[in-house]
Write a protein that binds this DNA or RNA. Structure first.
Lengths: 339, 339
DNA sequence: ATTTGTTATGAAAACGATTTCAAAATGTAG
DNA sequence: CTACATTTTGAAATCGTTTTCATAACAAAT
């Protein structure tokens, strides 16, 4: 492989000048610039990335931590994040934590080992006190995750309010025994959602009984299992709030197969407005997050923090969401007619 | 940030010895090893990744090129690839090409700039002659993509035969005017599928007319559009083969909304056996690829090539697939009863 | 006591770029 | 023609490791 030295020799100039051309800095005559470019082309020269990273202490790379790319919401998120990052000249490396604490910490090491200039956490399973020390090694931004602390910038929607709205909607549709299926990880987000959900219930003199709260429900399969459980143990359930469209889809699928009518027998609400929620029969009521805006702001903030090493005041950006009402909760018929 | 030098000083030893401990090489007394480990802990030392990459000329990183992570098939693939890679101690960086030639070439530069030790191409939109030169910079393996050439190792299923089987199935179900919706990119894979599809038709004295061939159909939205087109311009169509479950789902969705019955009015076949194909009403007939096996072999082969720099003979690994028959093609009723 | 063979250690070179600093070349104003 | 500013260039230092090579220390064998 050709090095910068080879190029310099071939062009009859110094490494320094070649470096100037590579990074198109000023103070190189047009004539030599051409000569150098020719030399580079002739040798098929490409600067060695490790060397320039080492010397310049910049990697132009951002790590995005998320649970898993197979979750369409995060697929969509990573898509937008990458798009935006590349606008700013940054590369993205995708880190799947699978909701494992140790993986999350492992990936944060990327910041310490200087493999990345900054980190976006769209996965947050550790306690903040375990994350916080990493801030010494570089900027971190929370995307779609959040917490009480103010030590870090966060970009997200109001999950508590969103869950409240969803629960209220179910209540307004006539549901009286509403189940709650949560993405199991005990994150701040899930706690917020549960609070919002319970608030709505309480305001209508209802409450979430232990038997109607199901945890660790993540994907379509879990949704199916959840329905089986409800059918056997809580057959009087008439509505359910889920943490994702996948789970909701699993429930709708299993319920339909068992002859339950959606929404008459069971009204279902999902989360994230994935394509899946629209395609299901019946289409699933869900909450839409402004993914692109969130992604856009996240990158903007992180890049800013990378560039202005002086730690800017941390901020919190809360974006609006939208409850999208579809057939899965459209109970204008009387609830629970003969099943 | 502490450097190896700082650790050496604190431990009263040399950089070399510290380096030996870091890479747990032999020839360090237990006593000094302990002293050094203490020093590292005290300073919170972590080796700088760029420096070691530069010196050792290894990155322990693999690039995976694929069209987009929002396509669930590739989401699944990346999931498996990452899993396997980490078993071998390799990191994966995900590179979305969005079927753009220039992006594909951009990402291949990672090999030249020594940012990665090897590349997995699950996206292949360029001509081979444009890719081939990159082989000088490091190993490349084709995963789920393939072509005639024998210059590179390939892992895939027989897409031609799979499309043949799917078409045959449609014919056996009584379809007589079968449309073909293809993921537009003019890749070898799509060509193979089309050949297989047409072979089946020809063997039954049918052929694919221009009007029933629709290209550049990639996602659910495209599927919907495709149905609208067929409905208006080719209403006598009674079966359709699609390049992905997403497209198939879009068609089923649009068709149902317009009052067409699936499969009586239109039988639909998807590809990849994504969750979506099972959840749709009706469930969609599709082709399942052994993603895990493909991923596993891909990593194994690539890592082998990275380690044994001597270029092993290139090979081709062809895995079996399975046609999964579901309701969307279950035409035991008479086709085209009054619509 | 000397040789031979391990084990243990460190000084210095190397990896391939960028950055600093000094000096040379050129232009421009007085 | 001189003085000063600006543009152009390169030698050498630097980034933080790993690798090479030389040598020291120790044990076992002659």
């Amino acid at each position: 492989m050709a090095t910068i030295e080879d190029v310099a020799k071939l062009a009859g100039l110094s490494r320094t000048t070649v470096s100037r051309v590579i990074n198109n800095q000023p103070y190189v005559t047009e004539e030599k610039k051409i000569k150098i470019n020719e030399a580079m082309k002739e040798l098929g020269y490409v600067p060695n990335s490790s060397a320039r990273r080492l010397r310049s202490q910049r990697t132009e790379t951002i790590a995005v931590l998320l649970p898993r790319v197979t979750n369409p919401f995060f697929g969509q998120l990573i898509e937008s994040l990458e798009q935006k990052a590349s606008d700013y000249g940054y590369q993205v490396i995708v880190c799947q934590t699978h909701d494992k604490k140790y993986k999350e910490l492992d990936y944060l090491q990327l910041l310490k080992t200087k493999q990345v200039d900054g980190v976006i956490m769209a996965s947050l399973t550790n306690e903040w006190m375990d994350i916080e020390p990493f801030l010494d090694s570089g900027p971190i931004v929370l995307c779609n995750e959040y917490m009480e602390t103010q030590d870090v910038t966060m970009i997200h929607i109001d999950h508590k309010q969103a869950a409240y709205d969803a629960a209220l909607h179910l209540i307004e549709q006539g549901c009286r025994r509403i189940a709650y299926a949560s993405g199991g990880r005990e994150t701040y987000i899930s706690k917020q959602r549960k609070i919002g959900f319970c608030d709505a219930l309480r305001e209508h003199n209802m409450w979430l009984s232990k038997e109607l709260e199901i945890n660790e429900v993540l994907d379509v399969g879990d949704g199916q299992t959840t329905f089986q459980y409800l059918k056997v143990h809580q057959p009087e359930v008439d509505g359910i709030f889920t943490g994702s469209d996948e789970v909701a889809a699993g429930i709708v699928y299993a319920a339909s197969k068992e002859g339950w009518r959606i929404p008459e027998d069971l009204a279902v609400v999902g989360f994230d407005n994935q394509m899946l929620s629209l395609l299901m029969v019946p289409a699933i009521t869900t909450i839409e997050q402004p993914v692109e805006q969130i992604a856009s702001k996240t990158i903007q903030v992180l890049v800013d923090q990378i560039k202005n090493k002086l730690s800017a005041p941390t901020q919190r950006f809360v974006y609006p969401y939208e409850l999208i009402k579809r057939k899965s909760t459209d109970c204008n018929t009387v609830k629970k007619t003969a099943r």
